[in-house]
Design a protein around this nucleic acid. Structure first.
Lengths: 342, 342
DNA sequence: AATAATTATGTAAACGTTTTCCTTAAAACT
DNA sequence: AGTTTTAAGGAAAACGTTTACATAATTATT
């Protein structure tokens, strides 16, 4: 009954103490805790009460060192600023954390700032056996440098397909997203359809653009350079882009292929008192709650944010258990959330 | 020049290998890496080249075990759903991560779901020497259970003041936030001012409410029960709350003391084609970018999100270095972002 | 009754660092 | 020349687990 450690002053008790208190070896304590071999019911009981008495909880670090697994996974997201687009990844982070917790894993959050240099730097941190696996949204650039790293621990890519490496990934069907949206616009009779996009290069932007082009093509509408404006994803840029389309083209509908640009576009539309959808029809990107609060509520392409996180987490866990299985490429559908802007 | 380990197949090299390669002891290698004692320039050089040759990087876990510090801090946020209010904390998380990275720390992200039970559970995970310190936004309830934990590692509370424990914390001056807002409304001639709030109990909600009451009092306006509606923070609830105020009161202005309720309120205003600010003036909460895109752009109370994270991180790091210093309570000002809704 | 199989547990090495002592060689004093 | 000081670095313990191997006690088999 003597509490050797845990004097209430922060001195933590170790497995050794528990073993002594219970009159068994540390091996037995360990096996009781982990259920890794048979232990007599009676002995178990002794161990449990000793653990209670000493207020014992196992040291994660020591366990990780010995068993070579930290039950922790890393996440690298490219959130430049904490603007709306950063929210996308933060929301994904949230759903990853949720899923991981279910299976007893922890999440280390990190940020590449959409810059491949800091991405590499972060990876280097992660090399040190701190994490068992990695989930990341690759920033623009060649990722073959990850090949070596990937031998050491599994990687799951999310949202964007990395260049130069083949790994598990969970992506969104961006192509079909915009394709469907443009299709809808055309069905409603629009023939001059503008397109506002974030910088090309990221697979997401490229695919969305491809969907736009293909939809036009299939309906025998010409692709016009001047109907496309490409801007950095920022509110100001969005305002500017929409203004440009308004002033320089005869578009009757606009598709905005990025959330923050969507927001900017709406600002311009408001400022100029453009009647949506009568004067101009519009479809935006990402089903954030605010898109419901504009006037009129926006029709948007909805990405399955939670599913991305969930599936990524699941994929990684599965990969941790079978390093040899074929790489999986999961493509999640995006859906058109029809409201009143088109 | 022989590479003993690191055969390119994922076998990692250890300090022992580096030592052998450089012809020194592991002690020397360690000291070179950490700069913990003088090592001759020449020896250093040998160690460095050996490290390069073997592509060595130290094992974090082993280091943590020995030195009893993981250079990792935990964060617990109460993000029930990934709605707009969850974004607030995610944004804080983002700025914490940023600051921590600067000083070489990692961030483990976790979520209490605004539920004190899972909060406790998470804390218990963290007991295991995984983290060196904790930042958390306490959920509603008594937190004296953390006293014991706090002896083991420092805690910094953010956004909300915890009940039952005195710790470092960085809060926002919620009182002054709403006080100023109501003051502005009164100055503009409003006498019947509605107030929509999230559930009381959280210190944030309480303080905002206090600011509202005090501002009325100081301008000799009566506090009217029926002008206050309290709802769970959800879009639907926001819609309902604003509808109720519209139908059952003669308010000419409304203050909404929560972001997601603000969003809901705007939806109702749009649906009913209420002219803002002419028919109804309004001030919302939190300066998210979307508040600029409503029609008209919303006047909002802006919380210093990034500063919260930065200061919390700084406070924790400082505390890690001096466990005995007096507890600090930092209160950050919120600012009125005046736009056109009032 | 002797041996084999089974059951329940213990001993000690190992994980990869950091850190406390030591040791050696050279330089600086008497 | 003998002693002390300083400079540079090595040997090995320690951190708290997990786990490979060993052992003792019991039961089953012949």
């Amino acid at each position: 009954m003597s509490t050797i450690r845990d004097d209430g002053n922060g001195m933590r008790s170790r497995m050794k103490d528990v073993a002594k208190q219970a009159g068994v070896s540390t091996a037995t304590v360990s096996h009781v805790i982990n259920g890794t071999r048979y232990v007599a019911e009676n002995t178990k009981k002794k161990v449990y009460t000793a653990m209670k008495e000493l207020n014992y909880s196992p040291n994660f670090i020591a366990r990780s060192l010995r068993s070579n697994a930290s039950k922790t996974i890393g996440l690298i997201i490219p959130a430049k600023e904490m603007d709306t687009s950063g929210f996308f990844f933060m929301a994904v982070a949230h759903s990853i954390e949720k899923k991981l917790k279910e299976v007893g894993y922890q999440l280390i959050l990190s940020n590449s700032n959409e810059d491949i240099e800091s991405e590499m730097q972060q990876i280097n941190m992660f090399k040190n056996q701190m994490i068992d696996g990695l989930i990341m949204a690759p920033t623009y650039g060649d990722h073959s440098y990850l090949k070596e790293f990937e031998q050491q621990m599994p990687i799951v890519f999310i949202d964007r397909e990395p260049m130069g490496i083949d790994c598990d990934c969970v992506l969104v069907d961006n192509y079909k997203g915009t394709y469907d949206a443009i299709h809808l616009l055309i069905e409603k009779g629009h023939k001059e359809i503008g397109y506002i996009s974030g910088p090309l290069g990221l697979t997401t932007s490229n695919e969305r653009m491809a969907g736009y082009k293909e939809a036009l093509l299939e309906h025998d509408l010409p692709f016009k350079e001047e109907h496309v404006v490409i801007e950095e994803p920022s509110l100001e840029a969005g305002k500017k882009a929409m203004a440009q389309l308004l002033e320089e083209t005869n578009c009757t509908a606009v598709m905005v292929a990025n959330n923050i640009l969507t927001l900017g576009s709406v600002v311009t539309l408001n400022e100029r008192k453009i009647k949506v959808p009568d004067d101009l029809a519009m479809i935006g990107y990402d089903n954030y709650e605010w898109t419901e609060a504009t006037n009129p509520p926006l029709t948007v392409i909805k990405q399955p944010i939670n599913e991305i996180g969930e599936q990524a987490a699941e994929l990684l866990i599965a990969r941790l258990e079978d390093r040899e299985a074929e790489t999986k490429h999961i493509s999640l559908p995006s859906r058109l959330e029809e409201r009143q802007s088109c």
